[in-house]
């Protein structure tokens, strides 16, 4: 303990939680796990199809009632390739870099979700490219967004 090397108290905080997914996420995740199918809800007021599905429209505040199947194909609406590692708090480990990361608008939906891309070369990607969800094998799916491994591009830039 000196001026050049002050005392730093190091520790790892490891908290465990059990979140209730709620009705909307449960219905979505169950279909993802059991059937590899993706769903959104449609706003009764402004007609947009929202993914994630939810009871109230994020754009206009209207109620939703219809559930629709969306994807598994979609379009890249924004993208990057992450080259800076950080510790994923869910695992306590760094996610290996580089990896593609994007906004995906699933076919049939009007909103976008963040997810990973199989492609990790930035110059092979562009906004507007068609992609398709890559699902984990049925026996490995547990009902989380990670049941989609990533999205694979369906065309060359």
């Amino acid at each position: 303990m000196t001026a050049e090397n002050p005392l730093r108290l190091e520790y790892v905080a490891n908290f465990e939680y059990a979140y209730a997914a709620g009705r909307y996420a449960s219905r979505f995740m169950t279909a993802l796990r059991d059937e590899a199918k993706l769903h959104g809800t449609r706003c009764d007021e402004c007609d947009v199809v929202l993914v994630p599905p939810r009871p109230v429209c994020g754009l206009c505040g209207g109620a939703t009632s219809d559930w629709l199947e969306v994807g598994p194909t979609g379009t890249i609406t924004g993208y990057t390739v992450v080259e800076i590692p950080f510790i994923d708090p869910m695992t306590g480990r760094e996610r290996p870099v580089p990896y593609g990361f994007a906004f995906i608008r699933l076919d049939g939906a009007d909103t976008n979700i963040y997810h990973f891309l199989e492609e990790n070369r930035h110059d092979h990607l562009e906004i507007g490219m068609s992609v398709e969800a890559v699902f984990k094998p049925p026996d490995e799916r547990t009902g989380t967004m990670a049941d989609i491994v990533n999205f694979r591009t369906l065309q060359e830039k």
């Binding site: 303990m1 002050p6 005392l7 730093r8 108290l9 190091e10 520790y11 790892v12 905080a13 490891n14 908290f15 465990e16 939680y17 059990a18 979140y19 209730a20 997914a21 709620g22 009705r23 996420a25 449960s26 219905r27 995740m29 169950t30 009632s65 559930w67 510790i87 708090p89 869910m90 695992t91 306590g92 009902g143 989380t144």
Partner: peptide, 30 residues
């Protein structure tokens, strides 16, 4: 909407920290 099976998501928040004690506390601990 039909009620479906409700999922429980078991997750962790696992984060490293390093706390600087500061001069007075350091002198005490020393």
């Amino acid at each position: 909407m039909t009620l479906s099976e409700e999922l429980i998501l078991h997750q962790k928040i696992n984060l490293p920290y390093r706390y600087t004690a500061g001069t007075v506390t350091e002198t005490f601990l020393e």
